[in-house]
Simulated assay, not measured.
Amino acid sequence: MSFADKISFGDAERKPSRKRRLLGVSVGMVYLVFPVTDILSGNLTGARAVWAAALLVAFVSSFLATVVANRSFFERSRLTYPLLVVTSVLGVAGALAFGGSWLSLPVYCVVLYGFTLPPLWAVWGVLTSLAVVVGAGLVNRTEADTMIVLGLQVVTLGVLFISVRNTRVLSVKLREAQGEVARLAATEERLRIARDLHDLLGHSLSLIVLKSELAGRLAEGSPQAHKEIADIESVARKALEEVREAVTGYRQRSLPEELDSARSVLRAAGVAAEVRVSGTPLPSLIDGLLGWSVREGTTNVVRHARATRCEIKVTYDGRQATLEIVDNGKGGDGPYEMGSGLSGLHERVEGAGGTVAAGPLPGGGHRLRVLVPAGTEASE
């Protein structure tokens, strides 16, 4: 599975299908048959019927547009709240103008409040809708039974959908927590294996090298024995070097792991994170170097940027890999100075033949940009 596939899969868990969501709310709109019946049966005639039909079409369109615009329980588009306001105004207008079965429009608004607004705001939306139903019913002299039924629907559906949203949010957070626990467990297991390799094989191979050197000095009188001992020493040194490389690989976290960790850290700090990865899988050395860069850049965003949004973009075209971490923070208004972390990163990237650029952006915010050419080796 490529990086992009992995990230898309993670986003899919957080963003339910819009088509499925739209289908679900569309089924509930069957109760609008009663306002439609008012128009078709002649209860509303003339200009009132025309205005009622236009208002109903506008309400349904705005309602569905709000559902589609709401990306997920965690993310809102720029149109979500404006459309929610328009839908609410149309619902109140229909209830006040026509009464009767039109009092059901605020009930539909309650569904949107439950899915879209934070819990406290959603509660206020439910109370406001209840007041609209009661007030519009009294103004239009709607039967008490109808007002009571619709009022109960406002309260019960409001509580239901607020609970559904909270349950969904908790479910996603639980899956993320389980994934983080699994990643931590895997990391701990790799570190344990690395320690064991280093303690067992590293010690034994180092001892073989030392013994071979000693035996070589003792066997200087026998060229053949000296040659064989030198071969043993060479093989032992090579094996020791390979063990050290393996230990380094086990201890190094991959770029996908660092990206997942960055998501969790940024979200915990109240920063909305957007991660985009494109291109083929990275070579191992570049993968580790960009993973280190993501860790350092994310740490700086959380500690110093005072940002609310951060975008992490990784691209690889076969010739060079590019990492960009851009935030909308307000820290560091004066001359930009690299701290020890970025200075260390700069040295690592330069050792791989790459470049690092970091600093504030003209329009506000900060950017860390790392470019690493393919076919180079990072310095240890």
Rank of each mutant, 00 (worst) to 15 (best):
N70V: 06
T66E: 15
V133L: 08
Y108F: 14
V85T: 09
N70L: 15
F115K: 00
T87V: 00
T128Q: 13
V86G: 03
S72E: 10
A131R: 02
L83A: 14
L127I: 05
S62G: 15
L112F: 05
L103C: 09
T80W: 09
V126E: 06
E143F: 05
S101T: 06
S129C: 07
L79W: 11
V139L: 12
L64Q: 00
T142E: 07
L96W: 14
V110E: 06
Y108L: 10
P118L: 13
V111N: 04
S77W: 10
W124F: 06
R76A: 13
S77Y: 07
A93P: 05
T142W: 02
P106N: 11
S72R: 03
V67W: 00
F63Q: 07
L84W: 04
F59D: 14
Y108S: 15
R78L: 13
L103Q: 05
S129V: 01
L90N: 10
V68K: 14
P118N: 11
S129Y: 02
V86E: 04
N140T: 12
P118K: 11
G135D: 14
S104T: 15
F115I: 03
G91D: 10
L130N: 02
N140A: 11
V89E: 11
G137M: 00
F63N: 06
V107Q: 09
G137L: 01
L79V: 11
S62Y: 08
V60D: 10
V110Q: 02
L56F: 04
R71A: 13
T116D: 08
G135E: 10
G125M: 04
